[in-house]
């Protein structure tokens, strides 16, 4: 990692230190409410039915929520803030008048985003442990694939966001891409519950691979159709290709 990239990470950490209070509620309130509603409320009903073969429903949902939350955080941080840096506050232009180059900037943003997602997940996993949704060790091992899920979304979404002229497309993106992924990637029920012909479609969802990998890491049975290394490969490929595209997109947009 270049020293300019490190300095961008440091700068973002400093900015975050001044502004985290504003985002702390949205970072944790939604995941905690989801866990309480799904795990606590719905889970009691499901477990009472007793025919799922899943163990506790809360334990089934918790690692998936880690991956899904990582996706939400990463997508949130790679959309509006990127457009703001380019167009609204122009903070990216300020950075680029220094020795920092567009590629350093993109690398640094991805780096800081990874750190932030990881940090959020550790806090969330800690809360899950306190709420008896997960044991400590599985919670910690599930955090890593969940964080990778976040990064696999961050880089391609960032590449796309950096090419936008305004934020009109973003609302549709959240409504018609992010929300369906959240709901249909096997987060709340095994994918095998879906009609057989739909299941291969779910394989197209990056979140599905993140969830499967996180469940596997936490020792919870998911959908056994695909091997773990395939999930890992999909996420790594998305992250890698996305990073190349993001570097290109940043340079194209900011070096004009």
């Amino acid at each position: 990692m270049s020293s300019a990239t490190m300095r961008v990470i440091e700068a973002n950490a400093r900015m975050y230190r001044q502004t985290w209070r504003g985002s702390i509620v949205s970072s944790f309130a939604v995941p905690i409410f989801t866990l309480l509603a799904m795990g606590g409320g719905l889970g009691r009903l499901v477990d009472a039915g007793g025919q799922t073969g899943l163990g506790s429903y809360l334990g089934f949902v918790a690692p998936a929520l880690l991956a899904a939350t990582a996706m939400m955080t990463a997508v949130g941080e790679s959309t509006y803030p990127v457009l703001a840096g380019i167009k609204w506050t122009k903070s990216y232009h300020a950075a680029l008048a220094t020795p920092v180059a567009p590629a350093d900037l993109a690398n640094g943003l991805v780096g800081f985003l990874g750190i932030r997602v990881l940090f959020n997940l550790l806090v969330y996993a800690g809360l899950m442990v306190l709420m008896n949704a997960m044991d400590l060790i599985p919670a910690l091992t599930a955090v890593l694939p969940a964080a990778l899920t976040g990064l696999a979304f961050a880089t391609p979404v960032m590449a796309w966001a950096a090419s936008l002229d305004d934020d009109r497309a973003l609302a549709s993106f959240f409504r018609f891409v992010v929300m369906p992924l959240f709901l249909f990637s096997g987060t709340f029920y095994p994918v095998t519950q879906l009609p057989e012909w739909v299941q291969p479609l779910v394989w197209l969802s990056p979140l599905f691979h993140g969830i499967e990998l996180s469940r596997g890491a936490a020792g919870v049975a998911g959908s056994p159709a695909l091997p773990w290394w395939l999930h890992l490969a999909v996420l790594l490929a998305l992250f890698g290709v996305g990073l190349v595209l993001a570097l290109r997109s940043f340079t194209k947009r900011l070096w004009t």
Partner: peptide, 17 residues
């Protein structure tokens, strides 16, 4: 960066260098 203080704006910029 209007959300940051005067001092932090200068500090972060200095770190970019």
């Amino acid at each position: 960066d209007t959300e940051l203080t005067v001092e932090e704006n200068l500090f972060i910029y200095g770190r970019y260098f």
